[in-house]
Amino acid sequence: MDTATHMLRTGRRGALFQLQMAFRDLTNSFQRLGLAWSLATHDVGSRYRGSILGPFWITLSMGLMVLGIGVLYASLFNLPLNEFLPYVALGIVFFGVMTGTINEGCDTFVQAAGMLSQTSLPMFTFVWRTIFRNLINLLHHLVIVVGMLVYFDAWRDANPLQAAAGVLLMLLNAGWASLLAGIASARYRDIPPIVVSVMQFAIFMTPVFWLPDRFGKHQVFLDWNPFYHLLQAVRAPLLGQAVAPQTYVVLVLMAIFGWLVTFTIFARTRRRIVHYL
């Protein structure tokens, strides 16, 4: 058993102490990653309980959507299918993982209310749960990604290592956004619909279904769209395209700044989150 055998809780305050306790929460959560994984697999399993295909539905419904949108938009915009279909597939899959991590972040603590109010489990356990759940989804979607790249013979140009780094950067950024959404949603019940609206808007503002060169003189909207950079860091390497250096600058800065702010908020609200629920 890996449960703690010594517990000390004090009413001590002060920014430094709160930060220290927040770090302890994080490090303790590493020892309970197994639990987070169990909860995440249970979540995915129970969503498709009783269905014949089970979690394979994740792959199938995504595949159908990618095919539908890909074929439709390719003919609307007069684009070659063999270029556009992999592009759309990668876009929808990875944007979906990002959206999922952030949207489901809203439920992270609300969903765990029962456990949080009678155990000393680290708060971060539930953040990992949300992230793992979306990683499991991504693994199911990868079948489509790999299938597309192989079918359209685009895999020769792909740079999977660089794309993996992109996924890491994407998760690092979606991670803080997810935690921030979780804290805010526990406190204010208006947050989840706001988050969903923003993410819904973002998918249309970002070149997911359409090509970035269509933006023309409005290029500035792309440069300042964080979701574009997040997506580009994963999609471009897989399509054999170069990633602009400024994309990495934006992502790294955003990750650092985002985690600094979010972790500070987490440190300040950590002991209160259980009362929000």
Binding site: H6, M7, R9, T10, T119
Partner: peptide, 17 residues
């Protein structure tokens, strides 16, 4: 159980809860 943190004072528990 460790779910609520004190506003003042301390709680110390030795042993698996």
């Amino acid at each position: 159980s460790g779910a609520y943190e004190p506003d003042e004072g301390t709680i110390e528990v030795q042993g698996r809860i």
